[in-house]
Design a protein around this nucleic acid. Structure first.
Lengths: 211, 211
DNA sequence: TTCCTTTTGGCCCCCAGTGCCATTATTCTC
DNA sequence: GAGAATAATGGCACTGGGGGCCAAAAGGAA
């Protein structure tokens, strides 16, 4: 998962920022730039055989500086995920209250994972890493948790129960599972459409699991 | 998750093993012994503040030797998980073919997570670590994957579809989510019964998610 | 005893991640 | 234009997980 990272405020110029000239020395690169450089290296040598030194060197910055842009090597494929989560939260909040809970959640999952055609190859590349490299699979869990929290928070509000109670939590877990299962299919089938896969997976949930 | 680790062949004596006297120097400890020592230290100082050196020292072995018993510090709370998975596989295989798929899977999840009363405190301790310490949460994903594979393999067989196709994968993900949501409840509520929580969570799945 | 097998653990290495701090780039103020 | 003030950089040194290599220890069998 999820979304696509192009929303990051990055106009290419190192200066960045809109208007208000900030104080002090300007950052010498950006998250997006580093992420791009790293993804390229990962594609060439593989994730495990690419050290942080390699990435920093390729990006022309010091190793120490790298860790000011990303808290860990594992975060590289994720870009600015928090911004994506904000988007999803906003989308959910804007949905009408009379839309059934399941419909709302389903719609938000679809929307959150809509990616513009030109981003598809990059997104595939990132998702392939996240879903196959063990170190990344493991680390992703922490990101998934933040995503689940968004879903659970919304569901809890709609159901009028605590966020950490069983129903919203189970719902959030289930949605995550459905989405990831769809992603795995998407990776296997080069020509598949992610939105269609998600829709079909979500449809299946109602059909198959009805006790 | 899951199950309980007492099935490990461990009679307490360092020699271990039943019958056939093996050749060469005898192992100076056991997985279970190390796991126990480590869990105790984690409870005292916390997971992150306990180094592998600490654990090895407390167990009276060299650091290098530690890594012959456990591939990583993160594996300590898991014990012999592969044995648990074998148990679950066997349980599923023994179920009658005419039992509806969902019933079979539900039953196996319940059964897999049945724990004898005397093990409850230890299991709580282990699960609390696994579900709250970030490093362990992350690493657990790899174990969960093996568990999901068991479920997906069985479901695929019953459905007559490839194991990596969407339906068994989504089902497996969903079951994992349900189980973990139940576990989280179990940790929060000291007096709760895990089996009851699982049953109620699985029941909810059918009710709430029926499209 | 001697030989064979298996485990042990020391030594040294690699790599991720962090605290500390002097250096450099940039803007603001006088 | 000459400093402050501010913010990013990156070198250095350190911790901690993990692994390769290999000699030594501990057992059984001949």
């Amino acid at each position: 998962m999820f979304g696509d990272p192009r929303s990051s405020t990055d106009d290419g110029s190192p200066a960045g920022e809109s208007g208000a000239t900030r104080l002090g020395r300007r950052p010498s690169t950006t998250q997006a730039e580093l992420s791009h450089v790293a993804l390229t290296l990962f594609a060439e040598r593989g994730f495990d055989d690419t050290t942080v030194d390699d990435i920093a060197a390729a990006a022309g910055i010091g190793r120490r500086t790298f860790f000011r842009y990303f808290a860990s090597k594992n975060d590289l494929p994720w870009g600015d995920f928090d911004a994506q989560l904000d988007r999803m939260r906003a989308y959910l909040d804007d949905l009408p209250d009379d839309l059934p809970l399941m419909d709302a959640v389903r719609a938000s999952v679809i929307e959150f994972n809509r990616i513009p055609p030109e981003e598809v190859p990059w997104h595939r590349q990132r998702m392939r890493l996240l879903l196959t490299v063990p170190a990344l699979m493991a680390h992703s869990t922490l990101r998934y948790r933040a995503w689940r929290d968004v879903v659970a928070h919304y569901a809890a509000g709609r159901l009028g129960v605590p966020e950490d109670s069983l129903e919203p939590q189970a719902l959030a877990w289930t949605m995550l599972g459905i989405a990831l299962a769809a992603y795995e299919q998407w990776l296997v089938h080069e020509d598949a459409d992610l939105t269609e896969l998600l829709e079909s997976a979500l449809r299946m949930l109602g059909e198959r699991f009805a006790s």
